[in-house]
Design a protein around this nucleic acid. Structure first.
Lengths: 247, 247
DNA sequence: AACCTACATATCGTATACAATAACGCAAGA
DNA sequence: TCTTGCGTTATTGTATACGATATGTAGGTT
């Protein structure tokens, strides 16, 4: 329905954000949150009506989601929610291991005392939060992201930082912490402690090796419990799952 | 003026592309080609009129260019041609060195005999083309891109492949081969030979090391002759200075 | 003279209207 | 029953109209 710009009081006018960015964030969270099935069609008109905006900002949001790998868009066919194969997950973790290991090594050379202090504080807070059986998964995940982001920033290479952050924020990874058992969390925390120490002492090679192991360990957990959301089922209609895997 | 889709006979009537993609490609080539100066304002309306389309496809093209790092867009201020500082260039080369070295190592493990054959053919063709003083810079550059792209593909990691290709295709790097002297070309070709050999023999570590050296050497050449100052922030009074930026 | 305010203008963000295309179904024939 | 062709329809691509916002300027006040 034509929302005549009068409905600003309707939803969330708090921020001075644009409608396009709001639609983008909403859709991104919803896709990550599992509202849609892989292969689902995202129709501009339907989404526009649902969010009480016009097709223009929806369209913009979809294009952005495509560039970040959440949906695929075909010239006249529209947007489909993109699926993740086991191979995709493996590739992402492997790439993260490579890039973040290098970043950790650089961070070990660049970090100042206060940088190390901040990292250490964060690591301790994570340990405190994980005292019990990890209740606040979202909060822990957020702290973990922050920990990695700080190290990436300390690498001094903004390109590395941006690429690695993108990889970290991919939808199918965001919620993977639910898969962590107690011992996994313990090992992860131990890795973090080692990273802080290695960075504090300027031991670049050690920092890189720890980071690599840290990420590959997470990959193993993810892989073990998350084997193949293959396109097998998923066909409410006929054959929609043409699979984007190039191979 | 409503261009009633009849003017397709103007330039490229062959393809059935969308207007947005045409605008995107045109703008990308023009930015890479140096038509604009760093910091130039790209106004939607002006570009739309120039290309005889509406603002909508222009807008879409600009957003895409932003996501690929060619322009920066501020919420209500519009798009500016993005500049590359020496630090940016350094970051890109360093990141390429890290990622492509890893890719070369994986390629050494995955490559089949025919893969190696294809690489070797390409390397030989490049040597032949560089017999003289490198006349066809564009052609040579294209072959070089293909060489690297093949190795990236052989890594078996599509994520690595995509990231590295993006880094390779950044505007300010595309034409950097003009900076290569004869000895630089010779060393580059020698690197390629070594890469082919290392991959053929499955020597992952050697392949990775050669690739790393290969890219960092290129970085050094680029850096030496291309030391540019910062994009000077965005001076608000900065006026349009289009046309004529050869370099 | 400096500063603040109000207005004018240019450009972006969004809504809506229209055109083009591809998916879908239905019917007709073999 | 299967195939094939055409027409309908839903959805995307593009154009245009309108509203919102930032910037720049002129004029008035202190």
């Amino acid at each position: 329905m034509p929302a005549t710009s009068k409905n600003k009081a309707a939803a969330l006018p708090k921020r001075r954000e644009t409608a396009a960015s709001r639609v983008y964030e909403t859709l991104r969270d919803e896709i990550s949150g599992g509202r849609f099935r892989v292969g689902d069609r995202l129709t501009e008109g339907a989404l526009a009506e649902e969010m009480t905006v016009s097709r223009t900002p929806v369209r913009e949001a979809l294009r952005r989601l495509e560039s970040e790998g959440f949906v695929t868009i075909s010239p006249h066919a529209g947007a489909l929610v993109k699926g993740w194969s086991a191979q995709d997950a493996r590739d992402v973790f492997e790439t993260r291991a490579i890039i973040e290991a290098a970043a950790a090594g650089r961070a070990a050379r660049n970090a100042t005392a206060s940088d190390v202090q901040a990292l250490d504080d964060l690591a301790r807070r994570m340990e405190a939060a994980a005292g019990g059986p990890l209740q606040d998964v979202a909060g822990y995940s957020e702290m973990n992201r922050d920990f990695h982001a700080r190290i990436l920033h300390l690498s001094g290479n903004r390109r590395i930082e941006g690429i690695a952050l993108n990889l970290m924020d991919l939808g199918f990874l965001v919620r993977s912490y639910r898969l962590f058992g107690q011992e996994d969390v313990d090992r992860s925390l131990s890795d973090h402690r080692q990273l802080v120490t290695a960075i504090r002492d300027g031991e670049a090679d050690w920092a890189a090796a720890v980071m690599r192991a840290h990420i590959l360990a997470a990959a193993r957990i993810f892989k073990g419990t998350h084997d193949v959301p293959e396109p097998t089922g998923q066909s409410p209609l006929k054959k929609e799952s043409d699979k984007e895997n190039i191979t």
